[in-house]
Simulated scan of single mutants.
Amino acid sequence: MRGKDFELVPIMVGALTPEREAIYGQLLAKYADDPRTLFIVSSDFCHWGTRFNYTFTDKSKGPIYKAIEWLDHQGMDLIEQGEPQAFTNYLRLYGNTICGRHPIGVYLQIAKYAQADFRIRFLNYDQSSKCYGMNDSSVSYAAAVVTAEDQQC
């Protein structure tokens, strides 16, 4: 933000119900319509391993790290679709340990209630390590950008 005058408004989101995510999304949607506003939502993705109490596996996907990648990409695809309820259903179905699931849910609601049409696109994905066995552990990371439909990125 070198040389730019800006105001930072941090919003910390804890554990919310989908209904609360929708309420906050509605309240914040008007700010998303202002081109001077920038939202930054931060979250890790899957925390896999016994130390995280989460060991989703699907042998049909190959090694464990590939199953984790598949799992994360299912969530990422739903986020890109911009459907908050579909993302909530995914979380309920798989229990993926996405730390920022509630801020992501709020942002999906913001995009839903905003006047502008937003496009969410993931640019990068990685894992801290490749899990092959039940003694391994990993944290996944993904980066996305959101643009208004009339903008290019």
Rank of each mutant, 00 (worst) to 15 (best):
M1I: 09
R2D: 11
G3Q: 08
D5P: 06
L8Q: 07
P10Q: 03
A15I: 11
L16D: 07
T17Y: 13
R20G: 00
A22Y: 05
I23Q: 12
Y24Q: 10
Q26W: 01
L28A: 01
A29H: 07
K30E: 14
A32K: 02
A32D: 06
D33G: 09
P35E: 10
V41T: 09
D44A: 09
F45L: 14
C46Q: 01
H47T: 08
N53A: 11
F56T: 04
D58K: 11
I68P: 04
I68Y: 03
W70M: 06
W70S: 08
D72S: 02
D72K: 07
M76L: 15
L78T: 02
L78V: 03
L78K: 12
E80T: 07
G82Q: 07
E83G: 00
E83M: 01
Q85D: 15
A86G: 05
F87M: 07
T88I: 13
Y90S: 08
R92I: 02
R92V: 01
R92N: 14
L93E: 15
C99G: 04
C99M: 01
R101N: 09
H102Y: 14
H102E: 14
P103N: 07
G105N: 05
G105H: 03
A111H: 00
K112L: 11
K112S: 10
K112R: 15
A116F: 03
F118I: 10
F118T: 07
R119V: 15
L123M: 14
L123D: 08
Q127N: 04
Q127G: 06
S128P: 02
K130H: 12
K130W: 05
C131M: 04
C131H: 05
C131I: 05
C131V: 14
S137N: 13
S138C: 15
V139M: 04
S140E: 02
S140W: 01
Y141L: 02
V146M: 11
T147L: 12
A148Q: 12
D150F: 06
Q151N: 10
C153I: 14
C153G: 13
